[in-house]
Design a protein around this nucleic acid. Structure first.
Lengths: 330, 330
DNA sequence: TTGTACGCGTTATCAG
DNA sequence: CTGATAACGCGTACAA
């Protein structure tokens, strides 16, 4: 692996000159420039990124944690990660994956900072009062979150989120338009920031249609197909049961669908995420599609701004999702 | 961020001494050692990993590419990535994600090597005669592949794979035991190494049962639920159509299931991967479960061996998968 | 254009 | 036997 010194020797110039040529800086005569470039090509020289980063006191690496508390898999985050990497590479940065035993554990983040492995972070799976927001903000480490903490910290930090309230409002409203009046929801536990948003959209749509929400129509479950099945069976054994169910995720919705097919009871169902399999469940599942690519791109851009020192505090963006209507809600 | 120099000054020793203490090397008196450690703790000093890596000529980072030619998502690889990161962290290494326009494009790999971002690679989505094998082997860069190339290169490099032949043999044999005689397969294109293995298992099981394979019973599709649907409709319009279909992936199998439900035709179906949704399709899907965690752990270990210089050439491992029987094949 | 110092930790060499 | 000095890895910025 040739170094800048070898190039300098062969080109009869100083290492400094080579550096300037490589970076298009300084006043270098065309001949010298040419001579240097020739040697660079002949040797197949490529700059040692690590040396440069050491000097610049940066790593040009972004950290992104995968929590292991959620073995259920998440196609949204998988896509998100892909788009994120792609956008970050445009900035000549890279994405480093690390694990976190728990989303509310800041220790792995501290380790990454102390080891100076990363210049900043992307967070996902945010929860209410997410401790990472406070920790990273106080540590003065750049980061952008996919999702909010629904706390005052949201004013101070950078986040991009899908407007779950609008999405669930649309979903619920769509069912109302189809004639449903008894609409239930299967939501996550109250700790989930995104879950809470989606619930609010549901309630809002009911209110606007003059329907009084029934407390027993809110069923809380962890994510998962089996939990959707369970939730549906619980909701449908209520007196005066719902005729339609909105779900905070397609996994849950798939379980609801499964229950309705098994029990031969027609049910309006709308999910959330537009999971790849939604178009092929039976019946196919109406869902709220998250604009994952847009989110990833914006996050990468906001992070780059911070990293490049253009910081303005508290930039945030809410991106509206899109309702995709299929057989489960016609 | 305190440096080793500051620690040295406060402890009244030289930076070298601090380094020796930190690494438990050299002959340092207990008092000096204690004095240094006290200052280290007082300052909250952590070693600058980048400086160390520059000196050691390594990055302690493993590269892993995500190809963007396959927007369909893959829960197996998502899990795989997670387990991989976890195991690699035990080695004080990290996983760097990068994108590749195409699995058979080595340019992104070359870039990562030239930039000295990584010490080695993990490959997945291997294809027949995978060009990356040859390239990385010749470049003398350590790597371990999840999957083979079904070429002579397989003898020279390191790979770990799930025994798709055994898995598909079991799946097919299971259907034969259930009384099926006309069993078709929906496979991938012939470029896919893992796809070919699985086909062989299918053929093997038929042969062993004395069933002559029908060429028109092999249907090739790209992965995806919609393609499974299409494949099923094509196979089922053949004269003397199959009574059962094995599929190289659960995505494809889900499409087959969908077709069979829509057309009210009972069909034995077995998929491959044990996708999380398989237990909740209607009917639930029998599938071949990949031991992803074991694969990831072995890959990380084999890579570590190479990186630590214990190289032995051509270590490879075939790990048997497990058939999970559900409603679609009873 | 170039010499030189610097970023930071490690290790071989050398002095006490 | 203990610990300091200096060179090294490599690229970049500033003064000359």
């Amino acid at each position: 692996m040739p170094s800048i010194k070898e190039v300098a020797q062969l080109a009869n110039v100083s290492p400094a000159t080579v550096s300037l040529v490589l970076n298009g800086k300084g006043n270098i005569s065309p001949e010298t420039r040419q001579r240097v470039m020739d040697v660079v090509h002949k040797l197949g020289y490529t700059r040692n990124v690590r040396a440069r980063n050491l000097r610049d006191q940066q790593s040009r690496v972004i950290g992104y944690a995968r929590a292991n508390t959620r073995p259920e898999y998440n196609p949204i985050l998988e896509q998100f990660t892909y788009y994120l990497v792609r956008e970050i590479e445009k900035q000549d940065r890279h994405l480093l994956l690390f694990t976190s035993p728990d989303d509310s554990d800041v220790a792995p983040y501290a380790d990454m900072i102390d080891g100076q492995h990363v210049d900043g972070f992307v967070l996902s799976y945010t929860v209410k009062n997410d401790v990472r927001f406070k920790f990273l903000h106080e540590a003065n480490v750049p980061f952008v979150a996919f999702g909010r903490s629904l706390s005052p910290m949201d004013e101070l930090v950078h986040w991009v989120d899908v407007d779950g309230r609008a999405g669930m409002f649309d979903a619920t409203n769509h069912l109302i338009q189809k004639g449903h009046e008894r609409i239930a929801i299967i939501a996550w536990d109250e700790e989930s920031a995104s879950g809470q948003e989606r619930e609010e959209g549901y309630l809002l749509a009911l209110q606007q249609a003059g329907i009084t929400p029934r407390p027993d129509f809110t069923n809380r479950k962890l994510n998962g197909v089996e939990n959707g099945y369970l939730g549906a069976s619980q909701l449908m054994s209520l007196p005066n049961p719902p005729t339609a169910i909105v779900c905070v995720s397609d996994m849950i919705a798939a379980g609801v669908l499964r229950w309705s097919v098994m029990n031969h009871i027609q049910l309006g169902v709308v999910g959330f995420d537009d999971h790849p399999i939604s178009q092929f469940t039976h019946p196919s599942l109406s869902s709220v599609r998250q604009p994952v690519e847009r989110v990833a791109i914006r996050i990468a851009q906001l992070l780059a701004k911070q990293l490049d020192g253009e910081d303005v505090d508290g930039v945030c963006e809410l991106i509206p999702p899109e309702l995709v209507v299929r057989e489960s809600s016609v």
